[in-house]
């Protein structure tokens, strides 16, 4: 099985970091993974995207053009990539930025109050990881020890505060 994930949003929202965490989720499950960022002028501000593939077999193209899962962290990304989601796929979006209902009937829309949850829990800047937590529900077996193992690889343990905050955000996201 292969799961192709596209994460898109503003530069500075932690799009690439979120992708890295999801890639480590795959690695912690002994799956093949790839992570490909946008590295154009976007890096200097504006939009940021990241394609992550988790697979049980060797990964061919690392480009995610038809995601099974899209995480839209802002409105421009929602509009830009809504059409690209594979039929039967899932579109997660941050309800702080996207109010409009989706236009497709062949995909599932899931509103996640990522920004709001992060801010009301004193986790400013970690809406990305709240979203990651919510999104884990679409990844079979991404629970229990896997969640923590992946976090340990993403955030070095010497940065204990960061680790705890990120874990809290993921846990909150899973509970949404």
């Amino acid at each position: 099985m292969e799961t192709r994930i596209l994460i898109a949003g503003f530069g500075g929202q932690g799009i690439l970091f979120m992708g890295k965490y999801l890639a480590y989720i795959g690695m912690s499950q002994d799956r093949q993974v790839s992570w490909l960022p946008s590295y154009g002028p976007e890096m200097r501000g504006g939009t940021a995207q990241c394609g992550v593939i988790l697979s049980d077999t060797a990964i061919g193209s690392p480009l995610v053009e038809e995601p099974d899962i899209l995480a839209a962290m802002n409105l421009p990304s929602f509009h830009a990539f809504e059409k690209s989601v594979k039929p039967g796929g899932t579109l997660y979006y941050d309800s702080a930025f996207v109010a409009a209902p989706g236009t497709r009937s062949d995909i599932t829309y899931i509103a996640v109050s990522a920004t709001q949850t992060a801010e009301s829990n004193n986790l400013k800047g970690l809406a990305n990881m709240v979203m990651a937590g919510a999104l884990l529900k679409s990844l079979p077996g991404a629970d229990g020890g896997v969640i923590e193992t992946a976090m340990k690889k993403t955030v070095p343990e010497r940065k204990r505060e960061m680790f705890d905050a990120n874990m809290k955000a993921v846990t909150l996201g899973r509970a949404l």
């Binding site: 093949q32 790839s34 992570w35 490909l36 590295y39 990964i59 690392p62 480009l63």
Partner: peptide, 10 residues
């Protein structure tokens, strides 16, 4: 190339 240079794999 830019894809391989920028991508991460295990």
């Amino acid at each position: 190339d830019g894809i391989l240079g920028q991508m991460m794999e295990a």
